[in-house]
Design a protein around this nucleic acid. Structure first.
Lengths: 114, 114
DNA sequence: CCGAGTGTTCGATGCGTATCTTACAGTCCG
DNA sequence: CGGACTGTAAGATACGCATCGAACACTCGG
């Protein structure tokens, strides 16, 4: 069972989806939700691997939060890594941009119009 | 009752929303639906004002179809005009592109990946 | 080894919405 | 006028999904 080398965890690694394998419908569905939009925006304003799941200021419980991150992973928007007891996140900017050019920019440049 | 000059109708004119007044969330929600994606794509492949609502090859009844067009109007994606007994459509490409740059292209250039 | 902290999973619930059927309102043509 | 055609409106239904509470799994520090 040689798995992690440095700072690894013995937990089930999060399942990631390559943005290249994501359909337009899946991408749009993932982003068509107020909570997930907020997550992506907040994540975009932070450095990679600096935000744990619980560190986001969203008005939902942790169960729903976990679900939202699962959806974001499935859409190739977020990458997660276990760091001690926490699960830290990274927005897959370049990869997602390569698959859906301009889409992320739309969200991030998005006015408050919500 | 002098109302319309050329080819007018006495029906309640469809309510349109200016793309400028559409939120990102509304736009994404409108496009996060298989039927509406197909409508937009088919509409994009046709000349303006040449397609009546019933001329689309979608697997839903006309009631649901009417609803979908209502959503597309509300997202500033489609403009409608009454032409005789039919209601003809036009994709608001430029206006929508100005509000959400690249979003329509994403859909239209979208691979079959659905 | 225990306890605090973090996140996932499961079951249940509520709400939005996509859908259909039916009925209705216009428009046009004969 | 009457009938065919087109689209909307209203009511009913069903399914998806966002949410929550509770239980569980894992990590780390005393």
């Amino acid at each position: 069972m040689s798995n992690q080398a440095a700072g690894g965890s013995h937990r089930a690694a999060p399942v990631h989806t390559d943005p290249e394998d994501v359909s337009v419908l899946t991408a749009l569905s993932a982003l068509a939700d107020p909570v997930r939009i907020q997550l992506v925006r907040e994540l975009a304003g932070s450095a990679d691997w600096t935000r744990s799941c619980g560190s986001f200021d969203v008005p939902v419980g942790k169960a729903a939060l976990s679900h939202h991150f699962s959806v974001l992973r499935g859409a190739g928007l977020v990458e997660q890594r276990d760091q001690g007891p926490k699960r830290v996140n990274r927005l897959r900017r370049e990869e997602f941009e390569a698959r859906f050019p301009g889409l992320l920019d739309l969200l991030l440049r998005g006015d408050g119009t919500d």
